[in-house]
Nucleic acid binder design. Structure first.
Lengths: 210, 210
DNA sequence: CGTGATCCTGACCATTTGGTCAAACAATTT
DNA sequence: AAATTGTTTGACCAAATGGTCAGGATCACG
């Protein structure tokens, strides 16, 4: 049975349990590494029961991917062309960092997918994602031309924001391995660092020369 | 047969072929996703023949990981405490970016491993990698205290350099999906962007206010 | 309560996968 | 060229894996 919209409360509950469990498994194992048994286990259901709600492992995965991409891009949509350029970009950085804190599994799911060549999400990247990025790049370019932002390549600025913020979710194991293990404040430190860092780099003419 | 040091030219050639093939497979599939058949295929050998040179899939993988980590850290070892702080860090950024260009498979191999929780390399991270990072952090902190560098958290600066440079190898599929496909100059643009960007952010007191 | 629809499961299946092994084949040494 | 050592492979195996299915359990509702 291949229900698009959950009709009963049981369907809703179980589909959610499956997607939540699958998110955990896929995000740490990748698509090929994840097994239906693990997913069923994480969801608290039997394997045949999982396949009663989703036609295949692939369907669970693509369902997850396309649902999450939207959420993932929300912080970028909030950038306001009429706001103060540096402050708008800084709060974008903070929103992205916040997502790494709140949704690390989602971040790692995308990381896995893209590192492995984005075989199942390339269309979405070349379509909606690219459009949104180009639009944002336009805003940044306009700010920059108006002299309200240091000169930067908009696309590479966006890449750098993604890289630096998602790093804390995607490479969490490494970050924890390097920083003192008892140090659980590292995301707050990261916020302070990135905030200062991007402010210095983006403010036209440099900030408060000493 | 489990030969540590290749004794014959055939051993040398085949072990290299296996490691090279395996690098390609592991870097795009992850450990669990990769199969011995794929590796054998990529190496141009039969599966039993691969297992004649390496005891198991796991042994190939860990061999790759530990061999490569050393190369991977070389750029950081080159940082010279007696050089000019901003220039030393900028050339470190450029060396790291150059590695993304020359060794994208190696970068993705580590990315896969770490995204999935670094199950087989955590010891090396907590040991040698951490030591080197702490040492470099000490150098950066000294520069900063001497007022030769803008105030930054050394560890998070290092993370940001890793993130921004490796992004171009690890998330290559996304970068290519977003930038114009005909644009094969994006790594040169990235070099220009990162160079300007880190110079602005690191130079104490800001750079050449207009 | 009865009945049709929904939900769940044990048993099963075909394929894939990591790994073994005896025997054939090739290189090197004596 | 015989003996020794090193290399390669086809055939095979057990376990894991994605997926199926018939039938039983449960639920919603007239």
């Amino acid at each position: 049975m291949n229900v698009e919209r959950p009709r009963t409360r049981i369907q809703k509950k179980n589909r959610e349990a499956i997607l939540d469990g699958a998110l955990g498994v896929f995000s740490t194992e990748g698509f090929r590494g994840a097994t239906l048994d693990q997913i069923a286990d994480a969801a608290g259901l039997s394997k045949p029961n999982v396949l009663y709600y989703f036609a295949s492992k692939e369907e669970i995965y693509t369902q997850l991917l396309s649902t999450l991409l939207d959420t993932w891009l929300d912080p970028m949509r909030e950038i306001d062309a009429s706001g103060d350029p540096v402050e708008e970009l800084l709060s974008y950085v903070m929103r992205k960092l916040q997502m790494s804190r709140e949704f690390p599994r989602e971040s790692r799911l995308f990381a896995n997918e893209i590192v492995q060549g984005a075989p199942r999400i390339l269309d979405q990247i070349k379509g909606p994602l690219r459009d949104l990025v180009d639009e944002t790049a336009g805003i940044i370019r306009a700010w920059e031309r108006a002299g309200r932002l240091a000169p930067v390549d908009p696309h590479h600025l966006i890449f750098s924001i993604w890289a630096t913020t998602q790093h804390y979710a995607d490479f969490d194991a490494q970050v924890r391995g390097i920083l003192a293990p008892e140090d659980s404040e590292h995301l707050d430190q990261a916020a302070a660092f990135l905030s200062d860092f991007y402010r210095r780099a983006l403010t036209p003419g440099g900030v408060n020369p000493i």
